[in-house]
Amino acid sequence: MTEELFREDSYLKECAATVTRAADGAICLDRTVFYPMGGGQPGDSGVLRLDDGSEVRVVDTRKDKDTGDILHIPAEGETAPAEGAAVTAVIDWDRRHRLMRMHSCLHLLCALVPGAVTGGNVSDGKGRLDFDLEESPDKEALTEKLNALIAADAPVGHSWITDEELAANPDMVRTMSVKPPMGQGRVRIIAVAGVDTQPCGGTHVARTGEIGPVQVAKIEKKGRMNRRISVALMSG
């Protein structure tokens, strides 16, 4: 199983690693800073740099649910390094940071909208959440409230609880469509001080002020009890 360095430090941009497997269109490492697609957040892209200075471009990152290995997907035509090769895994940091900012922003959105989350997606520079709501909130007012929480620059931290502790506190789970990352014996909790606390395996900024100004771009009615709220970053 790949050691997931990003779970403890979302700001790691690179790490030394060893190739443990390179087959079936994927490269596995003993440790990595690459986040695999999950929880509505896309997988990281970047490069694997070899000792001779050559690079293998990674266009996506997934997780093998059977083995727990993280699969670094090389670009078409790239030659995978041999098993046992030493590499430096380097993520596309600018893209990752935008994903971190948006993922944290969606946690703030969760805190402001009184409804269970029925779906969601984090994208580069934008994101959305679907809520179990009958009435749509006011777009301008919601934008103002979001930016106020961001400007408050509250700290964002993580901790771990056991699967049993989460099971005993079901109100911590806001998402109806995505199951919390359970099954490993412990669950990662993301807490925005004084604002929001919920289980999440994604990557996040250290303080809300780092998100920067945002705008609620659209609120759509997707069903009698479903409202889709789309948010965009206002700066790159």
Rank of each mutant, 00 (worst) to 15 (best):
V58Q: 04
K13H: 10
P181E: 00
R98D: 10
D132S: 13
C110G: 13
L50V: 07
V195D: 12
S230R: 05
E78Q: 08
H72E: 06
M37W: 14
A217T: 12
V58A: 04
D60M: 10
S123N: 15
M1V: 14
A17H: 12
G202Q: 03
S45F: 02
G68Q: 00
G223N: 04
G185D: 04
V47E: 01
R224P: 07
F131S: 05
C105E: 05
K222P: 09
V90F: 13
A141G: 15
I161A: 08
N226H: 12
V214K: 01
A22M: 03
K13S: 07
S159R: 15
K13T: 07
T162N: 15
V87Y: 10
E220S: 15
V113H: 15
R188Q: 01
Q215A: 13
T197Y: 03
Y35E: 00
G127S: 00
A154N: 11
L12Q: 09
R174C: 12
S104V: 05
P213C: 02
G77L: 07
S123Y: 13
K65I: 05
R128V: 00
D163W: 09
D196A: 02
S159F: 11
I229E: 01
F6S: 06
G38W: 06
C15M: 09
T162E: 15
G68A: 00
S123M: 15
D51V: 11
L71E: 02
N169M: 14
R228D: 01
P137Q: 02
T61K: 03
G120M: 00
V117G: 03
D130I: 04
L109M: 06
E14G: 09
L71G: 01
A116Y: 12
R21N: 06
R57V: 08
M172P: 11
M225D: 13
K222L: 04
T118W: 09
W93R: 04
V87W: 09
A168P: 06
V90E: 12
M225V: 12
D69Y: 12
G194P: 09
R31L: 04
G157S: 15
T143W: 03
L112Q: 13
K63F: 01
D51Y: 04
E135H: 13
F131A: 03
E83T: 05
P180W: 08
E135G: 04
T162G: 15
G53H: 14
S104P: 12
A23H: 09
E4S: 11
R57A: 08
A85I: 09
R21Y: 07
V195G: 07
R49N: 09
M176E: 15
S235A: 10
M172A: 13
G119P: 06
G223M: 03
Y35G: 00
V173D: 11
P81Q: 01
L112D: 14
M182Y: 10
A167H: 11
G115W: 06
G43E: 02
E220C: 11
H107A: 06
A116R: 14
E8V: 08
D163Y: 09
P180N: 11
R101A: 02
P114A: 03
G201Y: 01
H103R: 08
P36S: 14
P36W: 11
A23C: 06
M176D: 15
G40A: 08
